[in-house]
Amino acid sequence: MVKEIERYGIPIIHMATITTISQSVGANRIVPTVAIPYPVGDPSMNEKDEHELRRDLVLRAVKALGVNVEGPTQFE
C-alpha cells in the first residue's frame, strides 16, 4: 500500500513496529513505533505520558514528510 500511494507522488510516512517488514516492502519514510497492538500508544503509561509519547511519534512522522530522502530512511 505504502509504495502504491507514493507512486502518485504523495509523500507517505510508514509508522510500523516491525520495520524490517517495512524495509523489505520498500517504504521510503519509516517511523518505528511501539508495539504491534498499539503502535502509537502504551497502555502501561498513565494517560498524560501516553499522550506525550504518541504526540512525539506523530510529530516525528509529520516532520519526516517535510524531509527529502534518497531511499528507504528510518526516522528514529
Binding site: M1, V2, K3, E4, I5, E6, R7, Y8, G9, I10, P11, I12, I13, H14, M15, A16, T17, I18, I21, S22, T33, I36, P37, P39, V40, V58, A61, V62, L65
Partner: peptide
C-alpha cells in the same frame, strides 16, 4: 490494489501527505 485505489482518491483530493500506520 488497495494502495492504488486509495492513492488515486488522495491524489485527486489534493492531499499533501499521508500517515499510514501498520500493526
Amino acid at each position: 490494489a488497495f494502495g492504488k485505489e486509495i492513492g488515486k482518491e488522495l491524489k485527486e483530493a489534493g492531499v499533501s501527505g499521508v500517515l499510514l500506520t501498520s500493526t
